[in-house]
């Protein structure tokens, strides 16, 4: 049982990573990663939502009529996201204001729906929770790395703290849409081209 959870974890973090292997959750990857702090908040929200929605879908899986399974998954995902939104608005209003624009991006995040369909509907709640959690983590570290570079090159700051002084000409393109596309492409290139090249060679 333990090794099954372990296998899922390794897969979601590495070879079957939602972002660079399955190419899911791209919208938010592009939108959020120009500011490191926002990325962290977004990832926390996504990990929470994916883990819980996976678990809930898994608990209900034997009763959901096949015709409406997408609607039910959507409902459950939206439920958790809005729950987070309401709770943040009340107890952490500043973070809520940061995350507010991204709420919609979490609900339609293909990773959450993808895991619900591919895993949670056919697996037990315990494993589904692990799958949701680790998918979120796999997404998280990729985004944090991309965000680190985008913010550094584009604004000269890391987490809002100026690191590169006035001598650095900001690569404004990094903060905008094209920069996001390029950074993600480079990331995938490095991972696929250098790291995941040989099945036996694992970094």
């Amino acid at each position: 049982m333990n090794s099954k959870a372990g296998k899922i974890t390794l897969a979601n973090l590495g070879r079957e990573n939602p972002v660079f292997a399955q190419i899911l959750g791209i919208c938010s990857t592009l939108a959020v990663t120009n500011v490191l702090e926002n990325t962290a908040v977004m990832c926390a929200g996504l990990i929470f939502t994916t883990a819980l929605s996976n678990t809930t879908v898994s608990i209900l899986r034997k009763w959901i009529p096949s015709r409406i399974r997408m609607m039910v998954s959507t409902l459950i995902i939206a439920f958790y996201v809005i729950l987070v939104d309401i709770v943040l608005k009340a107890y952490l209003p500043d973070i809520s204001r940061q995350l507010g624009a991204y709420i919609g991006l979490i609900i339609t995040n293909c990773i959450i729906m993808g895991r619900a369909e591919a895993f949670a509907l056919n697996n037990k709640p315990g494993l589904s929770f692990v799958d949701g959690l680790t998918s979120g983590l796999g997404y998280g570290y990729v985004l944090l790395i991309i965000a680190f570079f985008r913010e550094l090159l584009g604004s000269g700051t890391i987490w809002g703290f100026t690191v590169l002084g006035d001598w650095w000409v900001k690569w404004s393109i990094m903060v905008m849409a094209p920069g996001a596309f390029f950074m993600l492409a480079v990331f995938i290139w490095i991972v696929k081209g250098l790291i995941l090249v040989d099945p036996e060679v694992k970094k």
């Binding site: 660079f20 393109i173 094209p178 920069g179 596309f181 492409a185 995938i188 290139w189 696929k192 081209g193």
Partner: peptide, 23 residues
């Protein structure tokens, strides 16, 4: 296309250039 960029990678780069054009 360079091996690592096949599929998603090159699509993203094209999208980036398209995005710049639309800017």
């Amino acid at each position: 296309v360079p091996k690592g960029l096949e599929g998603a990678g090159i699509t993203l780069i094209i999208a980036g250039i398209m995005s710049m054009a639309f800017m």
